[in-house]
Design a protein around this nucleic acid. Structure first.
Lengths: 261, 261
DNA sequence: GATATACTGTTTATAATATAAACACTTTTC
DNA sequence: GAAAAGTGTTTATATTATAAACAGTATATC
């Protein structure tokens, strides 16, 4: 249980093939013709296509054609499309991390982490479309987890408390990353931010939302706040910052209660 | 802007077809043969299939076959699969809401809302697979938004502040709903909860996570806390409750600051 | 009652998907 | 030199959403 002496081959067998490839655990072939492609090249091209045209446009054929090969050739490098997705996900997590911060700057550090993670979703709008099949186990993804933990390093919290806080932050980052991405996407699709926020639907909602059926929502729709009209009257400002401030306040309460501050 | 006198037909034109159908804004056909199906029947069957075999198994052919018709017949009722997805989403939101609570019980009320929303994801594991294309605009979905607002009704907050808090809660519910669903899914797929939590990968991670590369994560992986070994040593308990408590604490701070309590 | 109109469900057709199987080559190992 | 392992390609399969054309049916208007 605690004494583990595994060979790289054994480790590769435990992990999903895509993850094993991400860790570079596949030993290069000894015989046969020289390879004309590489895993990196394939993943890079797949990411490029996804960035430009979305995850749905990433087909084996499209990738291979862009590289000047046939679809089937890719299977000599990556066993399935699911494994390719794992590799793409990890590639998107290959970001440069900011310098470490002092323990007193835990709030800034956490904010930096959340904003940095949101950025992954904005840079790679397809990132959130890949389903989560488990906890992070690929190298770059884990590097980000390590980054998130940095802000808590010297706090008198146990491992589980630290992980729960990181999970809370990463969840928040994921949600807002996807929200932000959806807005970007709607804007790009030409439907404009107005359509996304619901501005176009204002009139329809005013007709449909009766105060009998929706007593609490009714006044908000009527005021135009639900669909984001009169954005200048919005005292809250950025929703992302608002929610993040509440979460950081909540964490602060916990840290005080734990005598960690 | 504030004086809107729209006919149902005009409202139907503003909304996406799926949403218009959800609101019952399509006038029944006047001529032609009697319809042998109905929108409700189709959506119900689609939900049934998705619940059993996942969203990917919901094809026009599969739905129609299950009802004893051909795939193309469905297009006489719903113009596209995207519109069907909107209707499925709204159908999943057709849940029974608990009794109202007093203003002092705002914490319980919010908790109830979050847990109720998480339940939608667990009951309909496909729910989170449908991409969000904008703010809620369908009847049952908006009923849930109305429910969430109830806890804030008598608080001295403006519309934007209320919506931001609801967005924070609903985002949290979404994240944990999907997380919970992913765990359920992994268990169902036979890979067992252990595989999802990463227990199966413990040995591999202990080999891969070097303290030089992952200084903050290293001790957590080595202790087994990352992969959830020794769950009995976990002092935090349920991650969902932990994060929710932090968020509610953060909201409480905000309410105090606003003299709302 | 006749006819035009609107609507029904069906059949046929299309382009795209992941990937399995068989193939002819090529490089290394024995 | 022969065997083994690996290369990229060709061919084939089952599945997808939905467009177009069809024959039949119920209603509206003459």
């Amino acid at each position: 249980m605690s004494h583990d002496d595994l060979t790289p081959e054994e480790v590769a067998k435990i992990l999903p093939p895509g993850a094993a490839l991400g860790w570079g655990l596949a030993k290069p072939p000894q015989r046969g013709p020289k390879r004309e492609m590489s895993i990196d090249l394939i993943v890079k091209k797949a990411v490029e296509i996804a960035d430009k045209d979305g995850l749905a446009s990433v087909s084996m054929n499209r990738i291979a054609s862009a590289l000047g090969f046939t679809a089937m050739s890719l299977y000599r490098y990556i066993p399935s499309k699911d494994d390719l997705l794992i590799l793409m996900q990890d590639a998107a997590c290959d970001i440069s991390l900011p310098a470490e911060r002092t323990p007193q700057e835990w709030r800034e550090s956490m904010r930096e982490y959340v904003l940095g993670t949101v950025d992954v979703f904005r840079k790679h709008p397809w990132y959130g479309d890949i389903p989560i099949l488990g906890i992070p186990i690929t190298p770059n993804n884990l590097r980000i987890v390590d980054w998130a933990l940095q802000s808590l390093r010297d706090m008198p919290l146990n491992h589980y408390e630290k992980m729960s806080i990181v999970l809370l932050l990463s969840s928040y980052a994921r949600t807002y990353g996807m929200l932000q991405r959806d807005i970007d996407r709607a804007v790009l699709a030409g439907s404009s931010e107005e359509e996304f926020s619901g501005l176009n639907y204002s009139a329809a909602l005013r007709y449909l939302i009766k105060s009998e059926d929706y007593p609490n929502l009714h006044p908000i729709v009527m005021s135009g706040a639900y669909t984001g009209e009169n954005e200048d009257e919005n005292t809250v400002g950025n929703d992302l910052d608002f929610g993040l401030d509440r979460i950081l306040d909540g964490i602060e309460q916990f840290l005080i209660q734990k005598n960690a501050l």
